[in-house]
Amino acid sequence: MTVLVFVEANDELSLQAVTLARSLGGELHGISVGAVDAPVDVLHVAQIEGSYAPGAWAAAITQLIDRLAPAAVVAPGSDRGNEVLAHVAARLDLPMAANVTDVRGDELTRQRWGGSLFEEARIESGLKLLSAAPFAFAPSDNVVETKVETFVPDLAPADTVVRVVDVVSTSTGGVSLADAKVVVSGGRGVGSSEGFAILEELAALLGGAVGCSRVVTSAGWRPHADQVGQTGTKVSPDLYIACGISGATQHIAGCKGAKALLAINDDPEATIFAHADYAVIGDLHEIVPAITAELRKVRGT
Protein backbone atom coordinates (compact mmCIF):
# COMPACT_ATOMS: atom_id res chain seq x y z
CA MET A 1 0.00 0.00 0.00
CA THR A 2 1.09 3.54 -0.77
CA VAL A 3 -0.04 6.74 0.93
CA LEU A 4 0.60 10.19 -0.54
CA VAL A 5 0.95 13.30 1.62
CA PHE A 6 0.84 16.86 0.29
CA VAL A 7 3.68 18.74 1.98
CA GLU A 8 2.66 22.35 1.47
CA ALA A 9 5.74 23.90 3.07
CA ASN A 10 8.31 23.46 5.82
CA ASP A 11 5.70 24.16 8.45
CA GLU A 12 3.96 22.70 11.44
CA LEU A 13 0.64 21.86 9.73
CA SER A 14 2.42 19.94 6.96
CA LEU A 15 4.33 17.87 9.54
CA GLN A 16 1.03 17.17 11.32
CA ALA A 17 -0.35 15.87 8.02
CA VAL A 18 2.73 13.64 7.70
CA THR A 19 1.89 12.14 11.12
CA LEU A 20 -1.65 11.28 10.03
CA ALA A 21 -0.42 9.93 6.68
CA ARG A 22 2.25 7.80 8.38
CA SER A 23 -0.33 6.32 10.77
CA LEU A 24 -2.25 4.87 7.79
CA GLY A 25 0.66 2.44 7.16
CA GLY A 26 2.41 1.40 3.94
CA GLU A 27 5.04 3.29 2.02
CA LEU A 28 4.76 7.04 2.49
CA HIS A 29 5.25 9.26 -0.54
CA GLY A 30 5.22 13.03 -0.30
CA ILE A 31 4.54 15.65 -2.92
CA SER A 32 5.68 19.23 -2.72
CA VAL A 33 6.03 22.14 -5.09
CA GLY A 34 9.64 23.15 -4.70
CA ALA A 35 12.01 21.64 -2.17
CA VAL A 36 10.88 20.88 1.40
CA ASP A 37 12.15 18.79 4.28
CA ALA A 38 9.70 16.10 5.28
CA PRO A 39 10.14 12.65 6.84
CA VAL A 40 8.62 10.65 3.96
CA ASP A 41 10.06 7.61 2.21
CA VAL A 42 9.93 9.13 -1.26
CA LEU A 43 9.48 12.86 -1.93
CA HIS A 44 8.22 13.90 -5.35
CA VAL A 45 9.14 17.51 -5.99
CA ALA A 46 6.89 18.99 -8.66
CA GLN A 47 8.55 21.69 -10.71
CA ILE A 48 5.99 24.37 -11.44
CA GLU A 49 7.05 27.78 -12.68
CA GLY A 50 5.83 30.92 -10.97
CA SER A 51 3.61 31.77 -8.04
CA TYR A 52 0.92 29.69 -6.31
CA ALA A 53 -1.75 28.37 -8.66
CA PRO A 54 -4.13 25.90 -6.96
CA GLY A 55 -5.16 24.27 -10.25
CA ALA A 56 -1.54 23.59 -11.21
CA TRP A 57 -0.73 22.12 -7.80
CA ALA A 58 -3.84 19.92 -8.01
CA ALA A 59 -2.88 18.82 -11.55
CA ALA A 60 0.52 17.72 -10.23
CA ILE A 61 -1.09 15.70 -7.43
CA THR A 62 -3.62 14.03 -9.75
CA GLN A 63 -0.85 13.05 -12.14
CA LEU A 64 1.09 11.51 -9.28
CA ILE A 65 -2.06 9.69 -8.12
CA ASP A 66 -2.31 8.13 -11.60
CA ARG A 67 1.25 6.90 -11.31
CA LEU A 68 1.28 5.71 -7.67
CA ALA A 69 -2.36 4.59 -7.20
CA PRO A 70 -2.22 5.48 -3.47
CA ALA A 71 -4.87 4.34 -0.98
CA ALA A 72 -5.08 7.83 0.48
CA VAL A 73 -3.97 11.40 -0.12
CA VAL A 74 -3.50 13.46 3.05
CA ALA A 75 -3.25 17.26 3.04
CA PRO A 76 -2.55 19.73 5.85
CA GLY A 77 -5.61 21.42 7.39
CA SER A 78 -4.45 24.83 6.16
CA ASP A 79 -6.25 27.15 3.71
CA ARG A 80 -4.11 25.91 0.83
CA GLY A 81 -4.12 22.29 2.02
CA ASN A 82 -7.91 22.17 1.97
CA GLU A 83 -8.08 24.19 -1.24
CA VAL A 84 -5.71 22.01 -3.26
CA LEU A 85 -7.30 18.80 -1.92
CA ALA A 86 -10.77 20.06 -2.89
CA HIS A 87 -9.45 20.74 -6.41
CA VAL A 88 -8.17 17.16 -6.54
CA ALA A 89 -11.55 15.87 -5.27
CA ALA A 90 -13.38 17.88 -7.93
CA ARG A 91 -11.06 16.66 -10.70
CA LEU A 92 -11.48 13.00 -9.71
CA ASP A 93 -15.12 13.34 -8.56
CA LEU A 94 -14.26 11.62 -5.27
CA PRO A 95 -15.46 12.33 -1.73
CA MET A 96 -13.15 14.38 0.50
CA ALA A 97 -13.14 14.55 4.30
CA ALA A 98 -11.79 17.84 5.69
CA ASN A 99 -10.34 18.30 9.17
CA VAL A 100 -9.98 14.65 10.06
CA THR A 101 -8.87 13.74 13.59
CA ASP A 102 -8.80 9.93 13.34
CA VAL A 103 -9.01 7.21 10.67
CA ARG A 104 -10.18 3.62 11.26
CA GLY A 105 -10.26 1.78 7.93
CA ASP A 106 -13.19 3.22 5.96
CA GLU A 107 -14.42 5.10 9.02
CA LEU A 108 -13.09 8.36 10.28
CA THR A 109 -13.71 11.16 12.74
CA ARG A 110 -13.74 14.75 11.55
CA GLN A 111 -14.45 18.18 12.99
CA ARG A 112 -17.64 20.13 12.50
CA TRP A 113 -18.36 23.65 13.76
CA GLY A 114 -14.69 24.60 13.78
CA GLY A 115 -13.90 21.76 16.18
CA SER A 116 -16.81 22.24 18.59
CA LEU A 117 -18.43 19.00 17.40
CA PHE A 118 -17.13 15.72 15.96
CA GLU A 119 -18.67 13.65 13.21
CA GLU A 120 -17.97 9.96 12.73
CA ALA A 121 -18.37 9.11 9.06
CA ARG A 122 -17.79 6.41 6.47
CA ILE A 123 -15.98 7.37 3.30
CA GLU A 124 -17.04 5.36 0.24
CA SER A 125 -13.95 5.47 -1.95
CA GLY A 126 -10.95 3.35 -2.83
CA LEU A 127 -8.84 6.51 -2.74
CA LYS A 128 -9.45 8.49 0.44
CA LEU A 129 -8.89 12.24 0.31
CA LEU A 130 -8.31 13.56 3.84
CA SER A 131 -7.09 16.81 5.36
CA ALA A 132 -5.61 16.66 8.87
CA ALA A 133 -7.40 18.83 11.44
CA PRO A 134 -4.95 21.51 12.65
CA PHE A 135 -3.27 20.63 15.96
CA ALA A 136 -5.03 17.25 16.21
CA PHE A 137 -1.72 15.49 15.47
CA ALA A 138 1.79 16.03 16.79
CA PRO A 139 4.20 17.15 14.06
CA SER A 140 6.12 14.17 12.72
CA ASP A 141 9.65 14.01 14.16
CA ASN A 142 10.53 10.75 12.39
CA VAL A 143 13.99 10.54 10.96
CA VAL A 144 13.93 8.61 7.71
CA GLU A 145 16.07 8.35 4.64
CA THR A 146 14.13 10.19 1.96
CA LYS A 147 14.53 9.42 -1.71
CA VAL A 148 13.95 12.66 -3.63
CA GLU A 149 12.63 12.65 -7.20
CA THR A 150 11.66 15.66 -9.23
CA PHE A 151 9.00 15.72 -11.91
CA VAL A 152 7.46 18.25 -14.26
CA PRO A 153 3.67 17.96 -14.36
CA ASP A 154 1.78 18.42 -17.61
CA LEU A 155 -0.20 21.62 -17.24
CA ALA A 156 -3.13 22.79 -19.34
CA PRO A 157 -3.75 26.54 -19.78
CA ALA A 158 -6.84 26.28 -17.54
CA ASP A 159 -4.65 25.05 -14.64
CA THR A 160 -3.00 28.45 -14.26
CA VAL A 161 -5.89 30.86 -14.94
CA VAL A 162 -6.13 31.28 -11.17
CA ARG A 163 -2.74 32.27 -9.81
CA VAL A 164 -1.28 34.76 -7.35
CA VAL A 165 -0.34 37.83 -9.41
CA ASP A 166 0.68 40.13 -6.60
CA VAL A 167 1.41 40.15 -2.87
CA VAL A 168 0.50 43.08 -0.65
CA SER A 169 2.03 43.42 2.79
CA THR A 170 -0.39 44.56 5.50
CA SER A 171 1.82 44.00 8.51
CA THR A 172 1.40 46.87 10.97
CA GLY A 173 4.51 46.06 12.96
CA GLY A 174 2.55 45.52 16.19
CA VAL A 175 2.00 42.21 17.96
CA SER A 176 -0.24 40.15 15.71
CA LEU A 177 -3.32 38.56 17.24
CA ALA A 178 -2.40 35.09 15.98
CA ASP A 179 1.10 35.19 17.52
CA ALA A 180 0.45 37.15 20.74
CA LYS A 181 1.48 35.56 24.05
CA VAL A 182 -1.37 37.35 25.81
CA VAL A 183 -4.71 38.26 24.26
CA VAL A 184 -7.05 40.63 26.09
CA SER A 185 -10.40 40.07 24.43
CA GLY A 186 -13.67 41.94 24.82
CA GLY A 187 -17.29 41.08 24.10
CA ARG A 188 -20.66 42.76 24.24
CA GLY A 189 -20.03 43.52 27.91
CA VAL A 190 -17.42 46.12 26.93
CA GLY A 191 -20.36 48.19 25.70
CA SER A 192 -18.78 50.45 23.09
CA SER A 193 -15.79 51.12 20.90
CA GLU A 194 -14.44 53.56 23.52
CA GLY A 195 -14.85 50.88 26.17
CA PHE A 196 -11.92 49.01 24.61
CA ALA A 197 -9.43 51.66 25.82
CA ILE A 198 -9.02 49.84 29.15
CA LEU A 199 -8.42 46.54 27.35
CA GLU A 200 -5.86 48.17 25.05
CA GLU A 201 -4.04 49.62 28.03
CA LEU A 202 -3.78 46.25 29.77
CA ALA A 203 -2.78 44.48 26.53
CA ALA A 204 -0.04 47.04 25.87
CA LEU A 205 1.28 46.63 29.41
CA LEU A 206 1.44 42.84 28.92
CA GLY A 207 2.94 43.08 25.43
CA GLY A 208 -0.17 41.40 24.07
CA ALA A 209 -2.89 42.01 21.52
CA VAL A 210 -6.56 42.96 21.76
CA GLY A 211 -9.18 40.53 20.51
CA CYS A 212 -12.97 40.60 20.45
CA SER A 213 -16.16 38.63 19.87
CA ARG A 214 -18.37 38.77 16.80
CA VAL A 215 -20.97 40.93 18.53
CA VAL A 216 -18.25 43.57 18.75
CA THR A 217 -17.26 43.43 15.07
CA SER A 218 -20.90 43.32 13.91
CA ALA A 219 -21.55 46.46 15.95
CA GLY A 220 -18.58 48.11 14.26
CA TRP A 221 -16.70 48.66 17.56
CA ARG A 222 -13.60 46.83 16.27
CA PRO A 223 -12.39 45.66 12.84
CA HIS A 224 -12.97 42.04 11.85
CA ALA A 225 -9.21 41.46 11.99
CA ASP A 226 -9.58 41.50 15.79
CA GLN A 227 -12.33 38.87 15.89
CA VAL A 228 -11.49 35.60 17.61
CA GLY A 229 -13.51 32.52 16.74
CA GLN A 230 -14.77 30.06 14.17
CA THR A 231 -15.07 32.73 11.49
CA GLY A 232 -12.32 34.93 12.87
CA THR A 233 -8.75 34.32 13.99
CA LYS A 234 -7.72 31.22 15.93
CA VAL A 235 -5.35 32.15 18.73
CA SER A 236 -3.12 30.08 21.02
CA PRO A 237 -1.58 32.49 23.55
CA ASP A 238 -0.17 31.59 26.97
CA LEU A 239 -3.08 33.53 28.45
CA TYR A 240 -6.45 34.55 27.00
CA ILE A 241 -8.38 37.08 29.06
CA ALA A 242 -12.06 37.07 28.07
CA CYS A 243 -13.84 40.22 29.29
CA GLY A 244 -17.62 40.41 28.95
CA ILE A 245 -17.74 37.43 26.59
CA SER A 246 -20.46 34.83 27.18
CA GLY A 247 -18.61 31.79 25.78
CA ALA A 248 -20.57 30.82 22.65
CA THR A 249 -19.13 27.68 21.02
CA GLN A 250 -18.17 29.70 17.93
CA HIS A 251 -16.06 32.02 20.06
CA ILE A 252 -14.49 29.19 22.05
CA ALA A 253 -13.54 27.52 18.72
CA GLY A 254 -11.04 30.36 18.27
CA CYS A 255 -9.46 30.48 21.75
CA LYS A 256 -9.47 26.91 23.01
CA GLY A 257 -5.83 26.63 21.95
CA ALA A 258 -4.89 29.06 24.75
CA LYS A 259 -2.73 27.53 27.50
CA ALA A 260 -4.80 29.34 30.14
CA LEU A 261 -8.08 31.26 30.07
CA LEU A 262 -9.12 33.94 32.55
CA ALA A 263 -12.75 35.00 32.30
CA ILE A 264 -14.11 38.26 33.67
CA ASN A 265 -17.89 38.34 33.63
CA ASP A 266 -20.62 39.80 35.83
CA ASP A 267 -22.86 36.76 35.36
CA PRO A 268 -21.67 33.91 37.62
CA GLU A 269 -23.65 31.49 35.41
CA ALA A 270 -21.93 32.56 32.13
CA THR A 271 -20.87 29.62 29.93
CA ILE A 272 -17.40 31.12 29.56
CA PHE A 273 -16.61 29.98 33.12
CA ALA A 274 -17.02 26.34 32.01
CA HIS A 275 -14.08 26.90 29.62
CA ALA A 276 -12.00 29.02 32.00
CA ASP A 277 -9.07 28.14 34.25
CA TYR A 278 -9.51 31.33 36.29
CA ALA A 279 -12.58 33.43 36.98
CA VAL A 280 -13.22 36.92 38.27
CA ILE A 281 -16.86 37.79 38.79
CA GLY A 282 -17.99 41.37 38.42
CA ASP A 283 -18.01 44.44 36.21
CA LEU A 284 -15.14 44.42 33.73
CA HIS A 285 -15.15 48.24 33.69
CA GLU A 286 -13.94 48.16 37.31
CA ILE A 287 -11.88 44.97 37.22
CA VAL A 288 -9.73 45.58 34.13
CA PRO A 289 -8.44 49.02 35.28
CA ALA A 290 -7.81 47.55 38.75
CA ILE A 291 -5.65 44.80 37.21
CA THR A 292 -3.74 47.41 35.18
CA ALA A 293 -3.18 49.57 38.26
CA GLU A 294 -2.07 46.60 40.36
CA LEU A 295 0.34 45.48 37.62
CA ARG A 296 1.88 48.97 37.52
CA LYS A 297 2.15 48.92 41.31
CA VAL A 298 4.02 45.60 41.50
CA ARG A 299 6.27 46.64 38.64
CA GLY A 300 6.89 49.95 40.37
CA THR A 301 6.08 51.98 37.24
Binding site: L262, A263, F273, A274, H275, A276, D277, Y278, A279, V280, I281, G282, D283, E286, I287, P289, A290, I291, A293, E294
Partner: peptide
Protein backbone atom coordinates in the same frame (compact mmCIF):
# COMPACT_ATOMS: atom_id res chain seq x y z
CA UNK B 1 -13.96 22.80 33.44
CA UNK B 2 -13.96 23.92 37.06
CA UNK B 3 -12.55 27.44 36.97
CA UNK B 4 -10.61 28.68 40.00
CA UNK B 5 -12.50 31.75 41.23
CA UNK B 6 -9.95 34.47 41.97
CA UNK B 7 -12.53 36.77 43.51
CA UNK B 8 -15.26 39.28 42.83
CA UNK B 9 -14.85 42.85 41.64
CA UNK B 10 -11.70 45.00 41.60
CA UNK B 11 -10.51 43.50 44.90
CA UNK B 12 -9.53 40.42 42.90
CA UNK B 13 -6.73 42.34 41.14
CA UNK B 14 -3.83 41.19 43.39
CA UNK B 15 -4.92 37.55 42.91
CA UNK B 16 -4.99 38.11 39.14
Amino acid sequence: KQAEVLGSGPEAAPEV
